[in-house]
Amino acid sequence: MRFDPWNPDFVAHPYDVYAELRREAPVSYFEPADQWLIARHADVDELLRDRRLGRSYLHVATDEEFGRPPEPEFQEPFWRVVRAGMLDVEPPVHTRLRRLVSKAFTPRMVESLRPRVRAIAEGLVDAYVEKGGGDLIAEVAEPLPVTVIAEMLGIPERDRHLLRPWSSDICLMYELNPSEEMQHTAVRAADEFAEYLRGLARERAGKPGDDLISALAGIPELTEDELIGTCVLLLNAGHEATVNATGNGWWALFRNPDELARLRADRSLLPTAIEEVLRWDTPAQMFERWVLEDIEVGGVRIPRGAEVALLFGSANRDPEVFDDPDRFDAGRKDNPHISFGLGIHYCLGAPLARIEMVESFGALLDRTPALELVREPEWKPGYIIRGLQGLELSTR
């Protein structure tokens, strides 16, 4: 098998192909996506920190100057929302937005959420156990981070069912060569979510509450569009990866029963086990960057205007960095995985994601001594954001 992100067999198990790339073609051009694949940890690590690359190029050049076709006009509502947040912009705009948002998203504030996260996780798991199991992703993995981010933002409970579909649809735009139908779906979701948040932000600006939208609305330097773009990003980044990491992680444990038994016997391993989950089967298999100046990677020249595909899933299995990298080790101590990124775009929500996963895994381990796999799961078709369709388990 070769690198083929549209092939379900590759999506289900890309790691043998990654190993071949690292050995034989660590920097290679992938014509179907017009990208340069970067497979080794050292190169991915370096490029994530290299300011000659960017999530966008529009701060230094037009599409025409960069040799790229203009974005279709129908996509304008999508990019207006997304580029008002910090994910797809570069300094100085990124620097200003991250500084402002960080004021309302401090480590102390995030840690203060732990008791509430634990209570939500325990409630979801109790209901799951009472039913005798079911789809762990739909009934525990999804509602936990959605509820947490919704409570943080101050989304009324009656509207929270809208969040996950909006997020999933918005993320379709980030898949490789998305179909026109996928693009239109993403645009529609971004537009609907933005209009919903606009109304909520204006309401909170006049009558603030104890929530993140109110806090952001109280920052004079943050425009309304930037507030909306930030909230959309916090929803997408704040739960999309956590949902998939939770499903991938439990599937990893069922495929490594000795490590699951080890974790049940020693709950102090939970923090390192979560890091290993993120390394061993990361939900973010690839992140892309634009080359703003000519660079050389592994002796290969990559010109300005090219796009590099940083293979996080490959970097996290690089034997140059990780001992016995294909082995799942719940107690792995030296674990410099890059699943949250590096450099200026390092995930702002990483501390919250870790808390959510530790608390949900802990609640399941505490309350389900007889947790068993009902059937082998199937992977969703997406490659860049990679996760399971569902995970059917029994607690009886």
Rank of each mutant, 00 (worst) to 15 (best):
T368I: 12
R80P: 04
H239G: 02
Y57C: 01
G133V: 08
E142T: 10
A205E: 12
W290H: 15
H13K: 12
Y196N: 04
L365S: 00
E65V: 05
E24M: 09
N7F: 01
A61M: 09
Y18A: 03
A25R: 11
A261H: 11
L100F: 09
A127V: 08
F312E: 06
R40C: 14
L172M: 05
A104H: 02
S268F: 07
E203L: 12
F66I: 11
E31S: 14
P336N: 06
L234N: 04
S268C: 10
G134S: 12
H13R: 13
N335L: 01
Y15L: 00
D294F: 03
F287H: 11
F361M: 11
P77I: 01
A119K: 14
E240T: 07
Y128N: 02
L364K: 04
E180Q: 14
I155V: 15
L47G: 04
E151A: 08
W379L: 13
Y346L: 15
T282K: 03
Y196T: 06
L393G: 02
R51T: 11
R255N: 15
L144K: 05
I120N: 03
E392H: 09
L212V: 15
M152W: 02
R49W: 05
P377G: 00
M86W: 01
L100M: 15
R98H: 12
I228F: 09
R164S: 11
H239Q: 15
L47D: 05
N244V: 05
G343M: 05
G218N: 02
T246E: 02
W166Q: 02
L263V: 07
V82E: 07
P8I: 06
L222C: 01
H345D: 02
L373P: 07
D45G: 04
G382T: 14
L113K: 13
R51F: 08
A33Q: 07
